[in-house]
Write a protein that binds this DNA or RNA. Structure first.
Lengths: 131, 131
DNA sequence: ATTGGTGCAAATGCTTTGCATAAAG
DNA sequence: CTTTATGCAAAGCATTTGCACCAAT
């Protein structure tokens, strides 16, 4: 994978943000450093980087995909009002995979815990401002 | 919520299918009984029924949402190749919610286990036929 | 009679793609 | 020099919406 300026900066900004941004949120941030970058480049790089396992693609909520520069195993909470995603700390050492009794013929790759909830902002009634 | 013919049949067919169909898959099935039904009606009803908690909207990976007529708590595996979803049996009595150490200010509504894997069909190399 | 639901077509919004040009190795 | 990536605009696809008509209560 060729190291381009765009690719480097996209990765750098994604790793810096702890907000699990959507492609267009990241595009807005990256544009400050590379004003002529295209949203297509952002999408293509996010795809490429997640295929390579360098970042993670988060596909909760059925709406916009979100991306995470932190690939260490950890759980997320998804806000059902605004779609925001946050990391959650959970009890350590749990082997989620070991909890499967019958995989119904599937070859299990991985298991994770996920949570749904209402984020601090939306609890304050700010959901519309960030939706 | 008014009981219309369309609504009844959509619910009936969703409950009958154990495949966690997408809106358009369900549309195809329902159309056999109601040839003049619109895809918009299917979408609107699936939305209404899931808001009411009568069915579940599954928003795992991939583009299309899937729906589940079985609202009892259970876990799913998601096929990373074709998007198929299957139920998985897991160890009983686990309180996923209790595993949260720090909810980061979120009001947690629910937690679940989810798995990713490769379904029996895709293991046989049939992924393209069902993607 | 009133309210909510439906069918149709058009619109929306996120994401992907074709293509000519530019940059990396 | 060859290959891969970029920018732009257009296309794609799932989903939603406006509106006139219809059906359930």
């Amino acid at each position: 994978m060729r190291i381009t300026n765009q690719r480097e900066i996209i990765l750098e900004e994604l790793r810096r943000l702890k907000t699990h941004p959507t492609a267009d949120e990241l595009y807005e941030v990256v544009k400050k450093r590379l004003p002529r970058i295209s949203i297509a480049t952002v999408y293509r790089n996010l795809e490429r980087l997640s295929e390579a396992g360098i970042i993670h693609k988060l596909e909760y909520g059925g709406r916009q995909k979100r991306f995470d520069g932190d690939v260490r195993p950890h759980s997320h909470v998804f806000c059902v009002r605004c779609g925001r995603i946050s990391d959650v700390d959970t009890v350590e050492g749990l082997s989620v995979r070991a909890m499967v009794l019958d995989p119904k013929g599937f070859e299990i790759i991985e298991g994770s815990l996920q949570f749904e909830g209402i984020c601090p902002e939306c609890q304050k009634g700010n959901s519309l401002t960030t939706n």
